[in-house]
Amino acid sequence: MNGIILAADVNFMIKGLFSYQLFGQTVWITTTHVSLLIVILLLAIFSICANRVIKKADPYAKPGTFQNIVELIVEMLDNMISGCMGKSAKAFLGYISTLFVFILISNFSGLLGLRPPTADYGVTFPLGLITFGLIFFNKIKHQGVGGFLKGLCDPWPIWAPINIIGDVAVPVSISLRLFANILSGTVMMSLVYGLLNKIAWGWPGFLHLYFDLFSGAIQTYVFCMLTMTYVADAIGDAG
């Protein structure tokens, strides 16, 4: 079967680069791994530079450009997290900030010609599972096992299965949202570059502006915001 001929030029699938045998299993290194490594490398270089600059910073001197940018980022994340989580913000500052920066750079990596790592369900689902783990852990920690079971049987015990389904749906929905948004942007861009490659000069930049920058930033914000809301809800008034 030939399939659609036009679709032959469009290529947005995850490609395996090479495989190796590990304990009898074939393990593939894919484009996602490469993109992830590049993103992590960029973040590591930025972090090391920021660390050096902040450590050497003189509180009485005029701050340089790079120091100003780092302070701006940290202040923005600080405001966002403390505005949403209130008293318990301090414990989650590190995790949520890391998550925000990682997802943001992953979504923006489409600009570098990479396939965004977040357009792979294998990357976003673990992030959703971490959120699920945080919710579960904080519920047990702050409300106790009794409070957890009581919340599960909210108005009556008959509703327990529905509440369990609602709890399990959280990581699935939160990760599918991020994945589908970034995947749709990737598919659109590869359609433009694949089918219109004769006339794709300059103007796809505006599409990049929407699909990569705007959509990516909004989805990053939404993912972090929802994680914080769920965790703050799990902590309740106890925190």
């Binding site: 599918l176 589908a180 995947l183 749709s184 939404v222």
Partner: peptide, 29 residues
């Protein structure tokens, strides 16, 4: 508004996901 819209967009994206699964992953062939 942007936060609410991004959450509301999800259901449409589920439909898009199903469409892409049908077209490109071809689960039934």
């Amino acid at each position: 508004m942007l936060l609410g819209q991004a959450v509301a967009e999800t259901t449409g994206l589920y439909g898009l996901l199903i469409a892409m699964l049908l077209l490109f992953v071809k689960p039934f062939t």
